[in-house]
Write a protein that binds this DNA or RNA. Structure first.
Lengths: 253, 253
DNA sequence: CGTATTATTGACCACTCTCAAAAAACGTGG
DNA sequence: CCACGTTTTTTGAGAGTGGTCAATAATACG
């Protein structure tokens, strides 16, 4: 693992990542959501010189499980998936990240998961070593990061409940509801829910096969719970029944 | 939920928890493992007055999902399970905790899981509010807690991989290996692995039924991989083949 | 020692997976 | 813009892993 350059999942070494001198943190729309929110103007000014804006295209690998964890990233736009692999290729997507999330923090010197963009994405890169210094200097930053990590851990526990104890129908319904709630939090109020990830990605997130995901969504469509204009969009037509389905309180009709 | 007193899972209100004036942190054998490790003598002296030692018997509930998260706890002895429930009673045990772990940290004002002792246990209770003050005062404490949370998140990702993508045989083998490694880390070097949790607990941790857990362990016993003197102990007789089983590289013989 | 609880074992079954094919969507170049 | 090939998604039929239901065995506890 990890013989290819980062930000390259093809095996050839073509850097699509643009390391551009961005407009600076003042104009970053993600300041409230990312770990930067733990900083005031003065602190941010001090650190902004270390932050490098990064742009990647869809399907590019941001970081690879096992690689040296030299940087952490804040996602300012686009969508990213995190996953772990078994030796024979079986995959578990542990989470989908959207604007405001951050990734790359680990408990040792290597990344515990692989991160891959599922749409073109913008990120801010920050040297891990400097972050640790910054935490000593600005206690609020550590507090902020701790809060974010606790939030992620709570989500992870929810996902364990889903993976270990929910049926396929409950899994798909729960996933769609969670995506929808996340979209609302990010200000995406729309009856049309974006599904930037593939059916394979959804399956690998829910511990199912693509066939079961497809069949379940078709079933929701037949029941009038979901509208599926195309594979990358879903319209929640009946949130009450979708919630009932997520809680196993209904019969597939 | 949460109409019963904490530390009571029976419904009757009998407090078995002893709030004793302990011997103080100086003599605590868990100082290296718990969040206290982030503190030096001076800092610890400052905080020790806020720490209340707690003792509970087996099967007592320490805290309940949804209850006000007023305290965090460091586990100094014994074993604890964390779990979440679905409305119909299906349960997912998200983790087993042993000496050196801590619990109770949350992202909002209520606990995200229920915690129940599986053996008699000793804990140190700390007011959550004071902890937040202490983090501002002693940045190293925040760093320490952040590191612990990141470690837990990494474990959670491993568990998601297990729940979503491993077979029953791989799940049970992985669980036993993980327990064994944890025991080694805590200095319990023994060929006899303690299984303080019930088969139901193991099943609810692995996303299986008790019957499948029992059958799988019997199978390992028949294959000579495991010795099972009684239901609460397991002797790993062939770690190589157990590892192979955990990675799906073998046939149940 | 008797009772209750927990664990094991067995027979059967169903939910989801596997394998396979058709349909739809996507991208590319003429 | 359309024809073509590729990839992704959908749909179908059959099979298998792990679940359900039930009985027995072992263990813990008064």
């Amino acid at each position: 693992m990890a013989e290819m350059a980062p930000f390259d999942h093809t095996g050839t070494t073509r850097w699509k990542a643009a390391v551009a001198a961005g407009p600076g943190c003042d104009h970053c729309g993600s300041r409230r959501l990312n770990f930067c929110a733990g900083l005031d103007e003065r602190e941010l000014a001090r650190l902004s010189g270390l932050i490098v804006p990064i742009t990647v295209s869809g399907h590019q690998t941001l970081l690879r499980e096992g690689d040296a964890a030299d940087y952490i990233y804040a996602l300012t736009g686009g969508a990213v998936k995190l996953y772990k692999l078994l030796a024979d290729g079986r995959r578990q997507i542990t989470g989908f990240l959207f604007e405001g999330a951050f990734l790359g923090l680990t408990h040792n010197t290597s990344y515990p998961y692989t991160a891959e963009a599922i749409t073109p994405a913008n990120l801010c890169r920050f040297p891990r070593k400097r972050l640790e210094d910054a935490m000593d200097e600005f206690p609020r930053l550590g507090r902020r990061l701790l809060g974010l990590m606790v939030g992620e851990l709570v989500s992870a526990h929810d996902q364990m409940l889903l993976l270990g104890r929910k049926t396929a129908r409950e899994k798909v319904a729960s996933f769609l509801i969670g995506l929808s709630q996340g979209a609302v939090l990010r200000g995406r109020v729309s009856d049309s829910l974006a599904l930037p990830m593939s059916r394979t990605d959804i399956a690998d997130h829910l511990g199912l096969t693509i066939e079961t995901v497809s069949r379940t969504m078709t079933q929701f469509k037949r029941e009038g719970i979901l509208g599926i204009p195309d594979a990358s969009r879903a319209n929640i037509l009946d949130m009450d029944r979708l919630t009932a389905a997520a809680e196993g309180e209904d019969q597939p009709g």
